[in-house]
Amino acid sequence: MKGTHLGELEELVLLTTALLDGNAYTVTIAKEIQVQSDRSITLSTVHTSLHRLEKKGFVESYVGGTTKERGGRRKRLYRILKAGYQALEQSRELRNRIWEQLPKPSFE
């Protein structure tokens, strides 16, 4: 399983990519993460994460349309792949499983 580990940030980016189905690219993902988690994130971080996810076979990219703000430059859109979706599911199952075993904490 070497090379398919999903880091925390990568998981977040991957989830957001899935969420923004069809319109997921660096800028929208960064904006969405800001909105969702209220944490400020730089474009290059997102871009690097996407690059890694693509290498791991979790997402694929394709060249998409352009908008005025981009000055006519095309954007690279990302789409989650089956392996990516499975990785997300696995990660969630793992967490659920551990949550279920968690004893009720008492913080007093």
């Binding site: 690219y25 660096t26 800028v27 960064a30 904006k31 474009l43 871009h47 060249v63 352009t66 908008t67 703000e69 981009r70 000055g71 430059r73 095309r74 954007k75 690279r76």
Partner: peptide, 14 residues
């Protein structure tokens, strides 16, 4: 280059 510059410009206006 193209996508990155596009992204950056878009981010700038944002």
């Amino acid at each position: 280059f193209e996508e990155v510059q596009g992204d950056l410009h878009e981010w700038f206006y944002h």
